[in-house]
């Protein structure tokens, strides 16, 4: 079966801001394949090259070298064919005409995507209903909340009924409830057979909705994994955080087996990082026995997982 999206040895450099400096390498030798009908995550910290890759795939940025295809169409050789089969959704506040209503925004983009005018009205109604904006459809976008704008972004990306949808950090800046709603919307799209390529810096998000996740750092692809591997990492490198821990108790904890490091955060919270799995429980029991009552576990940061799993290769500089 033909892959929905492929990249081969993709590289993108940006001209340095000052002359004499080296060019910035945003993507370095990236080769990946996204299968039809999957939600493929691109997970990476700030500046990893996620947006750059999405832009190249959606034909709004050209690669410095290497090739990329969407449904078999080369993004450089035949951008027009790519544009007809993709949808593009940015996260954040930009990308909407805020003086217009949701409906008028969608009407405008429908025309630019060549949606036949007899279909436009019904398609817009259906999309507005789907993203839960029917009631506010005729209000100006400037009056919308962040979550509503993001759902409108999604509706805009779907206006041409694309086979492949690119979502660049679509839940950035959304509160947990709005993020959850948004992810559920994205998962309903997979059921319709759409291929979704989604970028995120949130490991939990990638684990929750992706079928496969490509990990990227400083322009280089580190690995492509299933969500269960991510889940395993999240638990394995879980950390314990406790408040109201005396210095004596902190010293006691740092001596427990499996504790890699302890660290006082500025607000006095003690953060305990573990080196092996299965030690979170004994650590918590020891803390409870020492009279600490405010404690819990936190997922590890993405940088930390990269450091543990990929070692220096994933180390942030």
């Amino acid at each position: 079966m033909q892959s929905a999206v492929t990249t081969t040895a993709l590289r993108r450099e940006f001209k340095p801001r000052k002359r004499g400096l080296d060019p910035i390498t945003a993507l370095d030798d990236v080769s990946l394949a996204v299968e039809p009908g999957e939600i493929h995550g691109l997970l990476g910290p700030n500046g990893a090259g996620k947006t750059t890759l999405v832009k190249i795939l959606s034909t709004i940025l050209t690669p410095t070298s290497g090739t990329a295809t969407v449904l078999g169409h080369d993004v450089v050789e035949d951008p027009g064919a790519v544009r007809r089969v993709i949808g593009l959704v940015f996260g954040g506040d930009r990308g909407l005409y805020t003086l217009l209503s949701a409906r008028h925004n969608l009407e405008y983009w429908a025309a630019l995507y060549g949606v036949p005018s007899r279909d436009t009205g019904s398609r817009i109604d259906a999309l507005l209903a789907r993203v839960g904006l029917t009631r506010r459809a005729d209000d100006r976008v400037e009056t919308y909340s962040r979550g509503m704008r993001q759902r409108l972004h999604l509706a805009r990306g779907l206006i041409s009924d694309p086979e492949v949808l690119f979502l660049d950090e679509p839940t950035v800046g959304l509160d947990p409830v709005a993020s959850l709603e948004f992810r559920q919307l994205v998962m309903t799209l997979r059921e319709e057979g759409k291929t979704i390529f989604l970028t995120t810096h949130d490991m939990g998000e990638a684990e929750a909705i992706c079928d496969r996740v490509s990990l990227i750092d400083r322009g280089a692809l580190l690995a492509t994994e299933g969500p269960e591997t991510l889940g395993r990492w999240i638990t394995a490198y879980e950390r314990v955080e406790a408040r109201g821990v005396t210095d004596d108790a902190a010293t006691m904890v740092s001596g427990l087996p499996g504790v890699m490091s302890t660290q006082r955060l500025p607000d006095g919270t003690l953060r305990i990082e573990t080196a092996v799995t299965g030690v979170v429980r004994p650590i918590m029991e020891a803390l409870l026995a020492a009279g600490v009552t405010e404690l819990g576990t936190r997922p590890p940061s993405l940088e930390e997982v990269y450091l543990r799993v990929f070692g220096d290769r994933g180390l942030q500089v």
């Binding site: 034909t59 709004i60 930009r94 990308g95 983009w109 630019l112």
Partner: peptide, 11 residues
């Protein structure tokens, strides 16, 4: 508003 990019991504 980043709409320039969005236009460039349309046919």
């Amino acid at each position: 508003g980043a709409m320039l990019e969005l236009h460039a991504a349309t046919p």
